[in-house]
């Protein structure tokens, strides 16, 4: 115990010598093309590229951290990292707990991925990731919802017949549908979500303002649209 206290104290001392103005960016790392872990074990994807550019424009040093989706908001609020940049849609419910910057992708419809193209989603079993706008949507409709902790598991559930279809962002499902012949996107899409923004603590107004300005400058010079098209995450502004 004493050693532990000493070790923590030593750590705290070392930490004091590091450079100032570091912003810790929290992401999920399991939602390609938005964010994922690449072959070399680093965070990669649209949000990595976007986040690095935003930090450059806001003159911040950024550090990337991954956190499970389920506890991504509690860990922001308790200060384990400073920003959530994880394909998180701006909703009123989340806005009560944290603050959002302006959106960096426009509101886009969500899509269904299923084994058969003529599935009637009403009355079917729908898989969605826990704590997402899609899960809330299915629950509100009163359809049968099966929730999973990671996006990967929702697709596995459709593949093995546990669910009839998965409801998620189209940009996440499209590459999967391209790759696997027996999985198809349904024609029906749902207009949910208010665009994706970065989440910050409500007490962190200064940081929010910095990122708001950086996002605006990327919107103005068109570089945000270029990035969106490159990673095919959504429609452009």
């Amino acid at each position: 115990m004493k050693k532990l206290v000493l070790a923590t104290a030593a750590l705290a001392l070392c930490a004091g010598m590091a450079s100032a103005d570091t912003v810790r960016m929290g992401t999920e790392g399991a939602y390609p093309p938005w964010n994922f872990i690449n072959d070399s074990g680093q965070v990669d994807g649209f949000e990595r590229a976007l986040g690095d550019e935003l930090c450059k424009r806001a003159e911040l040093t950024c550090e990337w951290v991954t956190n499970e989706w389920d506890s991504i908001i509690p860990n922001l609020v308790s200060g384990n990292y400073d920003v959530i940049i994880a394909g998180m849609s701006i909703t009123d419910e989340r806005d009560e707990v944290i603050d959002f910057t302006q959106n960096y992708t426009p509101p886009d419809p969500s899509a269904y991925l299923s084994l058969s193209a003529d599935l009637d989603v009403e009355g079917a079993v729908i898989a969605a990731q826990t704590n997402t706008i899609q899960a809330a949507f299915v629950a509100e409709k009163g359809w049968t919802l099966v929730e999973f902790a990671t996006p990967e598991e929702t697709i596995a559930a459709v593949r093995n017949g546990e669910a009839d279809a998965v409801l998620a962002d189209k940009s996440y499902l499209a590459p999967v549908a391209d790759e696997e012949a027996d999985l198809v996107l349904l024609e029906r899409e749902e207009e949910i979500g208010g665009g994706v923004g970065m989440g910050v603590r409500e007490s962190d107004g200064e940081l929010k303002a910095k990122f708001d300005a950086a996002i605006q400058s990327m919107k103005d010079d068109g570089s945000l649209n270029t990035l969106i098209s490159k990673w095919e995450v959504s429609s452009t502004f």
Binding site: T8, G79, N80, V97
Partner: peptide
Amino acid sequence: RQGNDFVVCAAAKLPLGTAPQWVHETY
């Protein structure tokens, strides 16, 4: 305590917000 947020001054953060990632991991 500000609503849901737990806000302490930057110098009291453990580990410091400016610390490199390995310090956070070790902590």
